[in-house]
Design a protein around this nucleic acid. Sequence first.
DNA 1: GGGATCTTCGCTCATCTGAGCAGGGGGACC
DNA 2: GGTCCCCCTGCTCAGATGAGCGAAGATCCC
Lengths: 314, 314
Amino acid sequence: MSDTDELLSIRAAELYYEENQTQDEIGVILRLTRWKVGRLLASARANGFIRIEIVHPRARRLPIERRLRESTGLTDAIVVSSAGVSTDAELQSRTAQAAADYLTSLRPIPRTLGISWGRTLHDVSLHLKQGWASGVNVVQINGGVSLNQRTGTAASTAVTIAHKADGSATLLPSPAIFERLETKQAMEADRTVAGVLALARDAQAYVFSAGQADANSALVDSGYLTVDQINDLVARGAVGDVVGRYIDQNGRIVDPELNERTVGIQIDQLRRAPLTIAVISGKTKHAIARAVVRNGLCTVLVTDEDTANALLHD
Amino acid sequence: MSDTDELLSIRAAELYYEENQTQDEIGVILRLTRWKVGRLLASARANGFIRIEIVHPRARRLPIERRLRESTGLTDAIVVSSAGVSTDAELQSRTAQAAADYLTSLRPIPRTLGISWGRTLHDVSLHLKQGWASGVNVVQINGGVSLNQRTGTAASTAVTIAHKADGSATLLPSPAIFERLETKQAMEADRTVAGVLALARDAQAYVFSAGQADANSALVDSGYLTVDQINDLVARGAVGDVVGRYIDQNGRIVDPELNERTVGIQIDQLRRAPLTIAVISGKTKHAIARAVVRNGLCTVLVTDEDTANALLHD
DNA sequence: GGGATCTTCGCTCATCTGAGCAGGGGGACC
DNA sequence: GGTCCCCCTGCTCAGATGAGCGAAGATCCC
C-alpha cells in the first residue's frame, strides 16, 4: 500500500473508531468514495494498526486459546487477559477465577474430583460460587498436612470446594514428604490412608497447580524442603513440582529417591487420566507450565496471556 | 446491569472482536437472541470494557482534540497518540511530524511565516516534505545566533523550511539575549536588523515551540543563561520560555529587565496574531504548555496525548 | 393481592457494511 | 508505440447491525 494510503487509512480509522462516523461520512470528509474508505479501514486492520482490547477481569483471549489447543493438543485451554493488570497477585486471582468458571461449566459434573493444594487452589476454592455443582466428592491427591501455619489451607481448600458443591471432602491425612521411606510406606499401609489414595487414583477429574523450583516454593515455605535441597534439584534440571513431585523440562522425575518419599498419586497417573486441569499462572511459572503441557500432564490448561504466549513462542 | 449480564457482555465481546463472529452466531453460542447480543455489546462499549487503540506514528486523538478546543477556545488542536511510544524522543518526533502535516495542510498558505528555533522546530523542518508549500517567506522571530555548536541549527531550520517550500528565508542575525541593554538597542537600530524584526512582526502566521524552565533549557545549553539564572527565574515563578522570553503560569514576563535584553518579537505580538501555532510535547513541558494555552499565546496547539490530558484535567 | 410504573424483550425496518464483479487506467514489456 | 496484464475503482447486492416500538415481565407500593 502506498504511503499516502497508509496515512489515509489512519485518518479514516480515527474518524471511524474514535468519532463513530459512518464510512459514508468519512468519505465526504476525506473526499473519498465510501468503498475506498471501507478498503482503507480493512487495510488498517490487516496491517495491525487497530488494536482492540477487552479490559475486564473476566476477559479471556480466545484466539490464543485456539492456537494453544492446536499447537499442543490440549483438550481445552483457558487464557485470561492480562490487559490492565499491574500486579502478579491480580493476574493469579483472574486465573483462579477462570478456573472456577471452568469447573462450574464442566459437563458432566465429575462425581469424584481430585485436587492438590496450594495458594492457587485455595484461590480457586474462594472464587467458586455456592452451588457451583452438586454432590461432588472432593479428594486430596497429595499429602498436605503442612509443618507450619499453612496447615489449615490444604484441608480448607478441599472442604470449601466440596461444601460449595454440596458434596463431601476426603482429606489425605499425611505429610507431603516423609524423611524416611519406611515411615512413608507404613503410612500408606494404613487402611484409611490407602483408602484415600485409592479414591484419589479413581477420581474422574483432577485439578492441580504447579510450583516453580526456587526458594519461594510452597514446599520450602511449608518446611518439607530446605533451600539447599531446592538448589540441588534445580542443579539437576528441576523446573518445578506437580503434586509435590519435582520434574525436569522433559516431564521426568528429577530425584527418584525423593519421589519415593512423597505421598500422593504418581505423575503417571495424571498422565493417564482423561481430565486433568492444570491451573498455572505468573511469570515465574513459565518453565513448569511448559513442562506440564509439553509432556501431557494435563488435558486442560488454565493460565494467563503471558504464560500462554511463552508456550506458543517456543 | 446485572452481574451475569456483565459477564455475558464480555463473552460476547470476545467472540465479536477477537473471533469475528456475527451477532447471530454469538447468539447461538451463548443461547441468546441476536438482539440481546447487540445490546450486550453496546453495554460493553458503554462501560468502557472495549478499548480501541490506533497504533501508528501518525495516529491522532480526535476526541481529545475536540475536548481541548472546547475547553480552551483554541482554533485548532492537534494531539498525537502516545500508544506504543517508549521514549520521549519518539513522542517529540511524532509531534513534530504532526506539526509538519498541519503546516502542509494550511489554507491559505501564509506568505510570511515567522518561526522560532530549537530542537522541536528543527525536527519539524526535517519532517516537512519537499514542496510542502510554494513561495513561503520564512522569517526568524527571535535571536538565534548561538554561542556554541548549536549555531547552525537555528539558521538551518529556517532555511530548510523555506527551501522545501520553494521560498526564501530571512534570518535574524542577532544573539538571543544581550548582556547589556545598550548593545541590544544598538543592534535593533541597525537597518538590516530592524527590517527583519518589522518583517517578523507582520508575519501572517507563527510557528514556535517553548522550553521548560530548568537546567536543560536550550538557552542554558546555548550559553545565554547560567543555571543560577534559571534557578532564580524559577524561584520567581517562571515555568518556561516562549521565543526566548520567560513567563510565569499567568503568561506574564517574569523578569522585565531580562526581557528587555532579549531580541525578537514580544509576547504580546504573539497574543495579537491571528494564527500562532505552538508545538509543545513531552512530560517536562506540561507547565509551559499550560501557560501558553491558558493565556492565549497560541491559537493552534500541536502536542502529545499526555500533555493534552494534563491540560484537560486542570 | 392488585394496580402502577419501569425495565427488558423480541421484532420491524432502515441503514451500514463487506464480498464479489466488471470496467478502466497505468505500468511493464516487447 | 503497441499490447498485455495487473491493480485499482466504482458498483450491485446480500448480509449484518442499530434505532425505535409495542408487548411482556419485573418491581414496588399500597
